[in-house]
């Protein structure tokens, strides 16, 4: 990528203390996001997949600055956010918006739909009349007739309608990047498809950049240009959607893909691709995080940090098997691209 990415994360780290002991001192730390770096080009959709607890949502919350990273920086248009000489935080907030998973919890039950959508612009100094106007036109744009829906309260809407309101709310600040944190996961399939198509239309119309977080691999494939696979707070694999889905390198990605439900009976899986739960993210051991569940794990996998390695053009994978001379018995076969 030669152009400056619209949003870039550099070595993001977020740990949560595990309280314990007499005085509630942090005894140990959950490594929710551990040294994660990636860049998103303007107009791109980056899909983020992984099991629950792998750090997808924490990454999202770091990107919108709902959480402060313990280390690392987030850059908007190549400029760091929230530091002197960088992008001011309020500016960044206007440009990066988020849609949450729980459509009910993300709307204030005491505000009408219109007031919820108009809230963001109001905060940023837009007049009441103009904010309301913008809210109404956005509601119309997401498929909710303002004359019928503007005055309603969240509990009077269906899940799909509420999520449309949430999308309108995120767009009300005219952001350039929208982070969709499991935004369609709670919807039933037919509604999910409608909302996904709406999201694609909106992306084209407003020139948006999406970070699309989901555990549904089919949905991610449909929505994304590139895919980032996360495992226990680290990036396992990152690459264009075609090469991830057709040429997955990391054993974890392969396991995820083989667990994907398929319409083709011949591709039906008969055995579980992975055994066990992901290991405890509290103070994880050194080396590859996946080694405990990986059938190719060897002794070298437990030594040192595994870096992302180029496994093809724009395809990065954090597995020793794809690194020549890494000491793994498979790594001899790896080729330098």
């Amino acid at each position: 990528m030669t152009a400056t990415p619209i949003l870039e994360a550099r070595q993001l780290v977020k740990r949560f203390p595990v309280k314990g002991g007499l005085l509630g001192k942090a005894r140990s730390w959950v490594h929710a996001v551990d040294d994660v770096s990636f860049a998103i080009a303007a107009g791109e959709s980056l899909g983020v997949v992984g099991e629950s607890g792998c750090g997808k949502s924490t990454t999202a919350r770091l990107l919108v600055h709902l959480l402060e990273p313990d280390a690392g920086t987030i850059l908007l248009d190549g400029r760091p956010i929230g530091v002197t000489n960088g992008v001011p935080l309020t500016q960044a907030r206007r440009q990066i918006q988020m849609v949450f998973q729980d459509s009910f919890a993300s709307l204030n039950p005491r505000l009408t739909v219109e007031a919820s959508v108009a809230f963001g612009p109001r905060v940023h100094g837009v007049s009441q009349r103009e904010a309301t106007e913008r809210a109404r036109s956005l509601l119309a744009r997401v498929g909710l007739e303002p004359d019928r829906f503007a005055g309603r309260y969240p509990h009077e809407l269906s899940g799909g309608q509420r999520q449309r309101v949430n999308i309108a709310r995120a767009l009300a600040l005219q952001p350039r990047v929208v982070i969709l944190d499991e935004a369609v996961s709670a919807l039933d399939k037919s509604v999910e498809a409608q909302v996904l198509n709406l999201l694609l239309d909106l992306k084209a119309e407003f020139g948006l950049t999406y970070v699309f977080i989901s555990h549904d691999l089919n949905v991610v494939r449909y929505m994304s240009d590139r895919v980032m696979v996360m495992y226990l707070g680290k990036i396992a694999e990152l690459g264009p959607v075609a090469s991830i889905y057709d040429d997955a390198r990391h054993p974890y990605t392969r396991a995820l893909l083989s667990a994907m439900p398929s319409m083709n009976p011949r591709r039906r899986t008969t055995q579980a691709p992975l055994a066990g739960d992901p290991p405890n993210p509290i103070d994880p051991p050194p080396g590859c995080r996946f080694k405990a569940r990986c059938r190719h794990a060897e002794e070298v996998c437990g030594q040192g940090d595994i870096q992302l390695y180029a496994a093809g053009e724009a395809h990065r994978v954090a597995c020793l098997m794809d690194q020549p001379r890494a000491g793994h018995s498979h790594s001899a076969k790896a080729v330098v691209p």
């Binding site: 709902l66 206007r94 918006q97 919890a105 005491r110």
Partner: peptide, 26 residues
């Protein structure tokens, strides 16, 4: 800890506005 308070914060609202509009009424 509900998402609508998070969403309000993500849209840049200060604590005073969040408390008055999103917390107190609820």
């Amino acid at each position: 800890s509900l998402d609508y308070v998070e969403a309000a914060r993500a849209s840049g609202a200060g604590n005073a506005v969040i408390i008055r509009l999103h917390v107190l009424p609820n």
